[in-house]
Design a protein around this nucleic acid. Structure first.
Lengths: 135, 135
DNA sequence: ATAAGGTACTTTGTGATGCAAGGTACTTGG
DNA sequence: CCAAGTACCTTGCATCACAAAGTACCTTAT
């Protein structure tokens, strides 16, 4: 029954799914900090929120990210007993984390402005293509 | 004059520069495709455009990216003699590349909407914090 | 008790890729 | 021929999303 079917592990060529994954990188961190900034939450809360915002995340991505943020001093957590299951880690932002979130907010605004500048310029040139100006 | 000053290559902890780099990842590809979509350009043109849009890129990032896009069939190029230096590679989008750019555009709009949804929600809750609701 | 199932947190290995640094190659001018 | 400028390419490292498998705790049923 061994089909010997060759399934390429990773398509070396570009596809849109890959591009989507790449675009999300780095943004995740920002979104998670935002969610935590609203009050104490644990991982499943974050997964729900991100899923409803159409930003898919899986555990294997989220937990290491939380650990990294914690180790960097941006987050803190406390264990809280649950009435239906194992205890949960409830996260909060530290003071440093709050400052960091502000900085990331600024970075996000600048980045999306920059991208939109480039997109807009394409559209501007698209409608008025004649441009044999000064080099 | 050897100062023996220790410059840590990479700070393991989070800092805002690192976060900026992460956020830019994946967006670059999109911006470069956009720039090429306007007409034939070579690498230095792209660097100028990205720099003026405040998206910093260096050669070590750009050239491998162009090669990857070319190998994936999204770009094509032709050599053009220059009157002041070595020949240049002028890039254009292929038909597949144009389709891909459309898809990326869609991805970008969705992603920035999603992020802004999360940011907005934080601000909404910030003004009306009282929420001892169900659950 | 003990087994089964659900919830929550953790770890390991892989692949993709931005980037620094260094290299190759062509052109022009002394 | 050599220096300087421009343009393109390559190597190696660090980071990080993700899949998959693992650990631990709680509840319910037998």
């Amino acid at each position: 029954m061994t089909l010997n079917q060759k399934i390429p592990k990773h398509d070396n060529s570009m596809n849109i799914e890959n591009a989507q994954v790449q675009m999300r990188k780095g943004i995740l961190e920002f979104c998670i900090m935002h969610i935590i900034s609203r009050g104490e939450v644990y991982a499943s809360d974050m997964l729900d929120e991100l899923t409803s915002a159409k930003i898919m995340v899986v555990e294997g991505t989220l937990y290491p990210l939380l650990t990294r943020l914690k180790n960097s001093g941006l987050l803190d957590y406390k264990w809280v007993e649950s009435q239906s299951g194992p205890p949960r880690k409830y996260y909060v932002l530290t003071d440093v984390g709050k400052q960091f979130l502000d900085d990331m907010q600024h970075t996000w605004v600048e980045l999306s402005d920059s991208v939109n500048t480039i997109v807009q310029k394409t559209h501007d040139l698209g409608s008025a293509s004649e441009d044999s100006s000064t080099k």
